[in-house]
Design a protein around this nucleic acid. Structure first.
Lengths: 202, 202, 202, 202
DNA sequence: CATGAATGAGGGTTCATTCAT
DNA sequence: CATGAATGAACCCTCATTCAT
């Protein structure tokens, strides 16, 4: 609904412009152009508003990653890694300030469940992608995949957390791909040139 | 001073037992066995208390990392990485619940300056360590070092953030060493003063 | 608005009954029959409440003086002085306790701006009145007028400040008129459009 | 005692430099170069400190006025008035900022008793002075005297209260003498040239 | 459904005062 | 007698939430 969207966007704007301290229901409602009463008709309490915002944010993010993964089915490993890292990086960098502010505010929320749901979706998408790699296979793909995602999520977050310059950010983005690929090359099963078989198994 | 220590420890206990929402000055003072007035004699405001706690936490952490780095001067690369990752991991795992709760709460604080100071210390220590490696050299050590730390910090944080099981945590810890080493092996310069042996081992 | 009036009146009552020390926002709100929150919806902080009360008080006072001055346009000097002094005195004496308590409490407030606005209004009104006197004129009316008002304001205040009895108060009120008139007779210019009569009366 | 003096002076300094809001016992003690504990050995509570300061201030003021009055015994009326007004004005103007700050702060204190004592002393001094005037006598000297002092005290206070410029202040000082003398000339007994008799009656 | 004035529990903070050293 | 750390009652103010209109 338009109202809900307006409230979500207002929440972000309040966070951006006035900071987390001024994130009051009244303030959000005002900026959304509705009354507090209306806000409370869509969200039973403040936490629900924040929870919803993060849910939506993570849904969109998961969508993007999942799409990218599907587009890479059967591609070579290096390309997959590049696509995954870059998709995630772009999604986070697009509205860097929003990303930063959301990173900082989720602390006020028990977002474990949210993160679990998000992780499940992304895990599934990336695992399926890597399983379909035309030029690589892994003994313990679940662990490798978990490690990879943990690294990507964590590293990107850390880049935002330390107030690194854009140049440093870009450099680290490139290095992140290098690192992830290096890792995958290291842990892939040694027999590699089984292209046809691996491909037909997909 | 004993009082300050008691207040810091009380802060942690309140965070652990009652959660960040119940982190009130009165509550902390009570648990520390002092009056609010006393608390305010050591910390000008609530934020300063929290800031101080984090400062101390990061100082201890940086100390541990720096010591480990110094102990590794001149060691081979693989051992350095292992030592670095394990030191950091142990420091974070020792009191896992405390780590988790601090990860979640620092977001409410503008800890940019704190992180910057912490990063500067750790950066210097690890860069000096890697520069002394007996079996490896790097073209752009600063960037490589920055990337490595960003990955370690971020990955560990993410492990805590997603409520992963101990087993998964341990697995990822091991993988983290693998990943870091894989990265360093990839970006190191091939020629080195121990040319033949090092090259053939690759 | 009714609520604002209730709060103002409650402020006065608290001052009267409990004294300036007990003038707390909670206390005022209680006595006004509203909650603290409501009080803060009309006044951004405690000082604003007090400032508003004084503003209103001075506005009413200035109104009374201004009306009296207009009613005296063209009257003889003695009558003007009598009217001015008596109007001011009555306004202050009507609710003597309120006057006393406000005199004592305004000091805690930076009411310079308030007093300036009040003075400007009263100055203008009395100066216009004296300029229209049918039987007197002044070389430097602004200074004379300023002196007169300063004396009236100050003397009345001092009567309240020293806890003089009603009888003493009444006596001083009468003397105040005498004094003001004596002053004006002394500083008026002798030549006037009613020359002979006015001059011989001196 | 030197300590008491230091504390009094520190109180004034705190009022001047930091304002009435920062007038805390700790702050005063610090500026006086002693500890709070010491302050409490000389003053049982904060109010006593403030009371003492005002008492001393009024004592000095009364001394000055009384001396001036004694020096005017037997002098002509006009000279007496001039001396009285000027003495009081000078005493207040000498450290104008201190005067202003004390005027503003006495409100926090029930200084009725203090003012009564002060008034009694000054009343006696001025009444004795006027009774000795070589060229004037009064039917109801107590009332006339009370009126005169009330006017002088009140007018001077009002000059300080309105933030009048120095020039305006000086002008009003001059006018104040004019006004007081005009008043006394008006209310003196009509038979005037009884010089010898009046003088011998003293 | 929308509104927004009213609510009041509860938080951060201050500061007069005490008392063990 | 001096010190100053400790105390804790009390204050100002905020803001999530409700409900009569």
């Amino acid at each position: 609904m338009a109202t809900v969207d307006a409230i979500f966007e207002a929440t972000i704007q309040v966070l951006l412009v006035d900071g987390p301290v001024r994130l009051t229901t009244t303030h959000v409602a005002e900026r959304a152009g509705v009354s507090v009463g209306t806000l409370y008709q869509y969200f039973p309490h403040k936490e629900a508003l924040f929870y919803g915002l993060n849910e939506r944010y993570l849904d969109v993010l998961a969508d993007k990653v999942a799409s990218a993964c599907e587009a890479q089915r059967g591609a070579p490993l290096a390309q997959m890694v590049e696509a995954l890292v870059t998709t995630y990086w772009r999604a986070k960098t697009e509205r860097a300030e929003v990303t930063r502010v959301l990173y900082r505010s989720v602390a006020e929320l028990d977002n474990t469940a949210l993160l679990a749901a998000f992780s499940r979706r992304v895990d599934a998408a990336t695992e399926a992608m890597f399983a379909s790699a035309c030029d690589a296979a892994f003994d313990d793909l679940p662990t490798v995949n978990l490690m990879l995602l943990t690294t990507i999520f964590g590293t990107v977050r850390n880049i935002f957390e330390r107030a690194l310059s854009d140049a440093e950010g870009r450099a680290l983005h490139a290095q992140l791909s290098v690192m992830c690929l290096a890792y995958l090359e290291t842990v892939r099963v040694t027999r590699r040139s089984v292209p046809a078989a691996a491909a037909s198994a997909d």
